[in-house]
């Protein structure tokens, strides 16, 4: 894990941001997760995750143009950074290693 440690929810958020590519801001991220993962995401939980990831340097953000829809508030778009990508890679890598280390007998449910 090392310096690229991220939690499960953080991982989902990052992956979603990557999926949304240049339309990744608060609401779309929330809705995308809710749609794909079939789970409720509270604004608060998501916001904290975003902030934490940004602090870690896995995300960067910039404001978009102001629109009338949001009461004139600008959207903050998120992008994955280089180290964010590395973090995701590492998560996948460690998972893969773990999967590979499982002896096939473990998942052999015939005798149970």
């Amino acid at each position: 894990m090392g310096k690229y440690s991220i939690g499960e929810f953080e991982e989902i958020v990052m992956l979603t941001i990557a999926i949304l590519y240049d339309n990744a801001y608060g609401i779309t991220i929330k809705e995308e997760i809710e749609k794909r993962m079939d789970r409720k995401v509270s604004v608060g939980a998501m916001r904290t995750a975003l902030k934490r990831l940004e602090n870690k340097g896995f995300l960067k953000s910039n404001f978009g143009e102001a629109t009338a829809v949001r009461g004139g508030k600008r959207k903050r778009y998120f992008r994955i950074t280089e180290s964010g990508k590395q973090a995701l890679d590492q998560v996948m890598e460690t998972r893969k290693q773990l999967w590979e280390a499982i002896p096939s007998i473990s998942f052999d449910f015939k005798f149970i």
Binding site: Y25, V43, K51, V69, R70, K73, K75
Partner: peptide, 16 residues
């Protein structure tokens, strides 16, 4: 630092 975008999100959600 967060208020603008958080408030925007909430408003957007609200209207939706």
């Amino acid at each position: 630092e967060l208020i603008e975008d958080v408030e925007g999100d909430l408003l957007e959600l609200f209207e939706e």
